[in-house]
């Protein structure tokens, strides 16, 4: 993408909205009706699976096996959530996911922005070669098993470090932050110099506060990525139950139901009941409840995300 291609629209929209007049013609009315109908159907298709899962998770487990639950629970019950919350593994996985996400966001933002500051300084002599080395990593990956062997040889298997150390810096976010820092007027940084601030202090006290909006966007994306990841748990930390994450627990449930499905000829969840701590539920209900628990934090930050992600995407495209 060229920078002109994306940079332009930001300046233009008001001009265009004014120039278009609204005219009602037969063609226009028919088109608008069809278009609105289509978009509403599309939105329904996007939301239905989520509402269906929510309804199933709030429905009685034995009743859900009969099928036919729409977007409203048929026999309302909170039992599935009681079961999920009484499962020690899920509990622990939830807190591990939260802890991991927080640590990844903090370390990633800290180190990526520190490096971005150094690379945004025009006078920095090794700016170009260092940037190139980082950018190339967006396109080069040694592969799954070599990466696994490195973590193993560093002695980080089955440790919390395996979650945050390998993802301390993201080349893509580095470019976004560097671009934003470059747009900060040189005078601000020079005045900090005159007041006696060194590079480190300039970065922490002057540049970082100015980058808050971009840091927020980048941080949210990092958080979503970390919350959603499961492969790191599978590869590096599946040997220790206390390091398990919510996505990985959900993946294990999904895998067992897929295997059961393959064996019973396509029925993705067998009707067998699951007894857990004196409660009775069914795999399908249990899976729905865990899916909701895993999705809710994302849906919770979504309003904040959607306010910012377009601008974040634009910054990414308009780098220079």
């Amino acid at each position: 993408m060229s920078s002109t291609l994306v940079a332009k629209p930001l300046a233009q929209p008001t001009l265009r909205r004014r120039s278009r007049r609204r005219r009602w013609t037969a063609e226009g009315v028919i088109f608008t009706t069809l278009n609105t109908t289509f978009l509403l159907l599309l939105a329904a298709a996007m939301i239905y699976p989520l509402l269906n899962t929510l309804a199933t998770s709030l429905n009685d487990g034995m009743d859900a096996v009969r099928g036919g639950i729409g977007i409203w629970p048929r026999v309302f019950s909170l039992k599935n959530y009681e079961v999920v919350l009484s499962m020690h593994t899920i509990y622990q996985a939830f807190f591990m996911s939260v802890l991991k996400t927080i640590v990844v966001v903090v370390t990633n933002l800290l180190f990526t922005s520190m490096l971005a500051y150094a690379l945004s300084r025009n006078e920095f002599i090794f700016r170009r070669p260092i940037t190139l080395i980082f950018v190339l990593t967006m396109y080069f990956d040694a592969g799954l098993i070599p990466n696994y062997l490195l973590i193993r040889d560093l002695g980080m298997l089955n440790s919390f470090q395996a979650y945050w150390v390998p993802v301390m810096i993201s080349a893509f976010n580095l470019i976004i932050l560097r671009t934003y820092m470059k747009s900060i007027p040189e005078e601000i940084i020079e005045s900090a110099r005159i007041d006696g601030a060194g590079e480190f202090r300039t970065w922490w006290l002057i540049v970082m506060p100015l980058c808050k909006p971009t840091l927020a966007v980048v941080g949210l994306f990092v958080a979503v990525g970390s919350w959603n990841s499961w492969l790191d748990t599978l590869l590096y930390n599946s040997g220790e139950q206390w390091l398990s994450t919510l996505q990985y627990e959900l993946q294990k449930l999904l895998a067992s139901s897929m295997n059961a499905g393959a064996n019973s000829g396509g029925n993705a969840a067998s009707a067998a009941s699951v007894a857990q701590g004196g409660q009775v539920t069914t795999p399908i209900s249990l899976r729905s409840a865990i899916t909701v628990v895993a999705a809710v934090p994302i849906l919770f930050v979504y309003p904040f995300l959607q306010k910012h992600f377009v601008s974040g995407l634009m910054i990414g495209s308009v780098k220079g």
Binding site: L50, T56, W230, L253, L254, G261, A269, S288, I298
Partner: peptide
């Protein structure tokens, strides 16, 4: 913004038999 695990889980339910919630 939903994880692939969740999306795959939703897809597997959506595509299953009606008795498993396959809408």
């Amino acid at each position: 913004f939903l994880s692939w695990v969740i999306v795959a889980s939703l897809a597997s339910v959506a595509l299953s038999l009606p008795s498993s919630g396959g809408f």
